[in-house]
Structure formats: structure tokens, C-alpha cells
Amino acid sequence: MTTQTSTEYEKYYVPEKSRLAVCATIGLMLSIFGAASIMNDMTFGDPDEQTYSWPIFLFGLFFFMAVLFGWFRTAIKENIAGMNSAQLKKSYVLGMFWFIFSEVMFFFAFFGALFYVRMLAGPWLAGEGEAGRMNGLLWDGFEFAWPMMQTPQEAVGGAAAQPLANNGSYTSAHTSMAFRDAEFWWKWLPLWNTLILLTSSLTCHFAHTGILEGDKKKFNKWLTVTVALGIVFLGLQALEYYEAYAHFGLTLNAGIYGSTFFMLTGFHGFHVLMGMTLLLIQLLRSVMGGHFTADDHFGFEASSWYWHFVDVVWVFLFLFVYIL
């Protein structure tokens, strides 16, 4: 039912008008306003005061997700109705590609922070190098090592003893996530997580070949495995966080080691969650909606790119957060 006009090109479909964007804006802004209020109540407000931050946040979030759901549904319907020309599909491909690129840059900021503190700021604080040679006056006794198991504050004897205004107290972990702190290699969760994610990339690829061959069964099977692996990964990650907080003393407060550890793994974990959800939706579309054919499965493809991207980020994480 593609709209062919008299000329030789396919018409580029421009939706006439749409309420989606405005609704999505309302949801997004409400959730953001709610989230900011929650955080402020936490730190600045009176804890007993009655606030509406949570209801606003949750309402906004659900509204937003509902709109997104509707948005994707509209796009899928249009595709099924045959309104999408090859050119439009290419726009989607480009959109997804550059979106992933922006995500790469987001992680780049956090990796940049990690490298900066490990290679420059940390040694400077310990009085190493031209730029830091006088810092011993401030942080007497601080030795730099990575993972940082003693913060400068602790090295000088705690928050009250530090030579500058006390703006918070930073503890540090007594056990790091590094391999040498694990009792047995098979108890080292990151290793399992790595294996799981790498495998899931592979199974995702199998699913792709499946759909390319038009083999829906193969596709569904491997996609299920992929989603399951994603869930297992998230479970292990949760376990790891539990260990960190309960047994390792590794928390968000644990100096820059804790900060970088949780920011990198946390945002990665969040992206795994998103990727897993995307794949799950594709699975449901395929199983329940009967979507996807050998030459029309962009929803799945985009999700799989995202999945591979999340996987690659993990490889870097494994290398720089856990191993080196």
C-alpha cells in the first residue's frame, strides 16, 4: 500500500500533525520537576514536611512512558501500513546511529573523569609531580593508589582535621572490586558479568541471522535467550551492589573510587536495563504481534545495535574499572 505518485520516487511520509510531542513534554517536565523536588527535600528540606514531590514524579514518569509507548506504536503502525519509504527508513537508521554516538560521548565524560583522577589528580594530591609537589602541606600522609582505599580526608585524620572547610565526609572501601580482593576467581562477579554480556551479544547476533533467514522460530528463541541473559546480568549487578554496600564498605561516599565505580557501572547498568527492555519489547512484538520479516525488522535491529553498544561499553568498564 505504498503511496506511489506519478513520478519515479517514493513519497517521503511527513505526518500531518501530532499530539505526541506536546504530551511527551508534559510528562517529561513533570517527572523532572518531581525528581528535582525529591532531591531537594532530601538535602535541603524539612523531612517531616508534607510534599507532593513523589506523586508528581511518578505521575510524570508514567505519563511520559505511556506517551513513548504510544509514540512507538504509532511509528510501528505507520510502518505496517506501508507508509515508510526506503528513504524514511534510512532516516531512522541515521537517527539511531547518531543517538548511540551521543550515548558514547556521555560515557566518554565519565571515562574521562576516571582517567583524569587516576592519572593526574590522584598523584597530585599525594604530592607527586611538578604540579602537585606542595600538596603534602594539605594532605600529609596521603598515598595515592588505585583503587583508592584511603581518601585524603581519612589520611589526615577525618573531616574535622582536614585543612579546608568541611564539606562532607568521605569514607573509603576496605575491599575493592578488583580481582585481587576476590577469594576465588569463580567468586569474582565481574568475570561472570563479562561472560554473560559477551554471550548475549552473540545470541543477539544469532537472533539477527535468524530473522534475516526469515526463520522466526530461531529469532524468537535466541532473542529470548538474550533477554534472559540481560536479566541475569542485572541480577548479578544488583548482587554486586549489595556486596559492595554490605560487605566491602564501597559506597557512593567512598571517595572518588566509589564515585567513579558507581557512576560508571550504574549508568551502564541503567543502559542494560533500557536495552533489555527494548529487546523484550521486540520479543513481545514478534511473539504476540507477529511483527518482523526478513526484510523489515528495523525495531529489532535498532535495539540490537543498542545492545552491542552497551556490551562494548562493558568491555571498557571491565578493563578500566575492574582489572587495571
Binding site: W124, L125, G132, R133, M134, N135, L137, L138, W139, P152, L164, A165
Partner: peptide, 11 residues
Amino acid sequence: KRDAIPGFINE
């Protein structure tokens, strides 16, 4: 002109 940075000493 040199920045004064809390926690670091510039010479």
C-alpha cells in the same frame, strides 16, 4: 594570577 583551588596548592 593564579587560581586558588581548595585541596590543591599552586606555586
